[in-house]
């Protein structure tokens, strides 16, 4: 495999981890989030600071990075208790801009210059790069998918589905909306933190622009395209939107046109996404894809 393919593959896998996290928040719990790149960034910056300034290795920093992303997700998930739908979308956009501004203007986070010199991940004395780094990311994606699979079969998932469908009716069944919305935010943002950490160690240099609002929109597009609330939707969506720009590279001037056309066709003909409820692909692959509920 060429290093070009491995690079594209690694980025896709890292993004798929973050999009799986977004799926827990948006797909399973039904909470709109347009600021997911902020948590991807919080994971990346936490990993970068802990490894470049505090002397941690990737492995010792990882639990702290995931914990920190989840904790900040918990705090920033608090607005979801008070605000819903459009207002929550606007609130999460605001969170993205604030987090990006903090990275850009606070010197501790490297300011406009970002943070460089982030070390490579070392496993059993081997510095991971190329295919080995790709395989590590793939391993983490499998773990994340397993957690999502477990989640879809848990009581927490049933509670989240109920809240997504009819919040008031869910609470009359004894389900606490506050508890499960926050749980979804914690799990989803912790996954974004993991993705961010891998991104930082892969790129070895990060800056605030890597975690801006358009990145959040891209994550959401990947999720919508693949199918919200499905197990494999985030992976399929990320794969397609990761590969398409490369496939259309010879038509570089028309790339955005094809990308936009694809999204419009999806919205028109398959609003649930490629693997979403009632989709053509899902009907064909129904016996194989037992993953998501919706």
């Amino acid at each position: 495999m060429s290093s070009y393919v491995i690079t594209i593959g690694t980025i896709i896998v890292i993004q798929a981890i973050a999009v799986c996290g977004l799926n827990v928040i948006v797909g399973y719990a039904g909470q709109i989030s347009l600021g997911h790149a902020a948590f991807f960034g919080i994971g990346a910056y936490s990993a970068a600071i802990l490894t470049t300034k505090a002397g941690f290795s990737f492995w010792t920093a990882l639990p702290l990075v995931i914990g920190m992303s989840g904790f900040i997700g918990l705090l920033l998930g608090l607005p979801s208790i008070r605000v819903r739908e459009d207002f929550l979308a606007i609130t999460t956009i605001g969170i993205n801009f604030i987090v990006e501004a903090v990275f850009r203007y606070v010197q501790f986070f490297g300011g406009a210059l970002g943070i460089g010199g982030i070390p490579r991940i070392v496993l059993f004395g081997i510095k991971l790069k190329g295919i080995t780094f790709f395989l590590l990311c793939l391993g983490f994606l499998i773990v994340v998918l397993f957690i999502c699979w477990w989640f879809t079969r848990s009581w927490a998932s049933l509670a989240c589905y109920a809240i997504r469908e009819e919040e008031t009716a869910a609470s009359t069944m004894g389900i606490s909306p506050v508890r499960f919305k926050l749980l979804a935010f914690v799990i989803g943002t912790a996954m974004a933190g993991l993705g961010g950490s891998l991104y930082a160690h892969y790129m070895q240099f990060i800056s605030a622009g890597d975690f801006s609002f358009p990145v959040s929109v891209a994550f959401l597009s990947m999720l919508v395209l693949g199918g919200m609330g499905t197990l494999w939707g985030p992976v399929v969506g990320t794969l397609i939107l990761g590969v398409l720009p490369e496939v259309f590279r010879p038509l570089v001037d028309y790339r955005i046109f094809f990308y936009t056309l694809l999204l419009l066709l999806m919205i028109r003909f398959q609003p649930g996404g490629i693997l979403g409820e009632g989709s053509v692909v899902r009907r064909i692959l129904a016996p194989i894809l037992k993953g998501g509920r919706a």
């Binding site: 009581w155 049933l158 509670a159 589905y161 109920a162 469908e165 009819e166 008031t168 009716a169 869910a170 609470s171 009359t172 069944m173 004894g174 389900i175 409820e277 509920r293 919706a294």
Partner: peptide, 29 residues
């Protein structure tokens, strides 16, 4: 709901995308 009060709301409000059994299971959460 947990201390023993349950409601059958006007216009039923079942969870549309959950199965009958899953709808029942939300009641024993």
């Amino acid at each position: 709901a947990r201390i023993g009060i349950r409601i059958v709301p006007e216009r039923s409000r079942v969870f549309p995308r959950l199965t009958v059994y899953e709808n029942l299971m939300t009641g024993v959460y």
